[in-house]
């Protein structure tokens, strides 16, 4: 039915209908609106659509203005279903619940973390001492490139850098410092070495490339720059 009028005007009906839908909500530029107006003036089909769009848009606006936090159907279905369950006040903040969930998820992450860090710390201490001895405790190193060689050598048992500390990388704002056991005696290849390397790889996967740094205060793991 629109085809007849479509040819009479520069703007075709398909375009006009699409623009009418924008116009009804004030989403059309003024110049486009003027052109549209000219089309609608001579196109009954588009006039009918405009009426229809105005009616449905009015309904949407009424729904938009209706109070949304206490929906009307609450008294029917929801209220029936939750008759015995007290519901929180509409305006109570969800922050306490969100905060508790953040804490929980951080705790479960830290439990996973602490589960293996003590074991690693022991091994790390060995390696640390080893590296301290081998490299004079000064430079930063990724470490463990050829651990087997150095591992074979007898190493003095004294902790070279005081009570070493290991800092986990700072993720999501959690910092953990773990103090090593004082010194770990060893005089032969330690099976924990492999375990330690595996865990270092785990750490890499979880936090990105890490490096072991030797400082006066101890040994730290830090994200590699």
């Amino acid at each position: 039915m629109a085809t007849l009028t479509a040819d009479l005007t520069p703007m075709n009906c398909r375009q006009a209908k699409s623009e009418l839908a924008l116009w009804v909500g004030g989403d059309l530029t003024e110049s486009s609106a003027l052109e549209l107006e000219r089309h609608v003036a001579v196109c009954p089909s588009c006039r009918t659509l405009r009426e229809g769009l105005s009616a449905s848009h009015t309904a949407l606006q009424a729904a938009a203005a209706a109070p949304v936090l206490r929906p009307a159907h609450e008294e029917s279905t929801t209220a029936r279903r939750e008759a015995n369950r007290p519901r929180p006040a509409s305006d109570s903040s969800i922050w306490p619940a969100v905060s508790a969930r953040i804490t929980r998820s951080e705790q479960s992450r830290s439990q996973r973390f602490n589960g293996w860090v003590p074991a690693m710390a022991v091994s790390a201490a060995c390696v640390a001492i080893l590296f301290v001895a081998a490299q004079n405790a000064t430079q930063s190193t990724r470490g463990f490139r050829s651990p087997d060689d150095s591992w074979q050598q007898p190493i003095p048992l004294t902790p070279a850098v005081g009570p070493p500390r290991i800092s986990s990388p700072n993720t999501n704002g959690i910092d953990r410092d773990i103090t090593f056991p004082q010194a770990v005696p060893f005089d032969r290849p330690d099976p924990r070495q492999r375990e330690f390397q595996n865990r270092l790889r785990e750490l890499d996967r979880e936090f990105g490339p890490m490096e072991l740094r030797f400082r006066d205060s101890g040994v730290t793991f830090e994200r590699r720059r």
Partner: peptide
């Protein structure tokens, strides 16, 4: 948005019995 309003009005007016389902 244009498509959404057009579809909504067609369904709305049909349901209201105004019969001006256009597009």
């Amino acid at each position: 948005l244009a498509e959404a309003r057009t579809r909504f009005q067609a369904l709305w007016n049909k349901r209201q019995g105004n019969g001006s389902a256009a597009s």
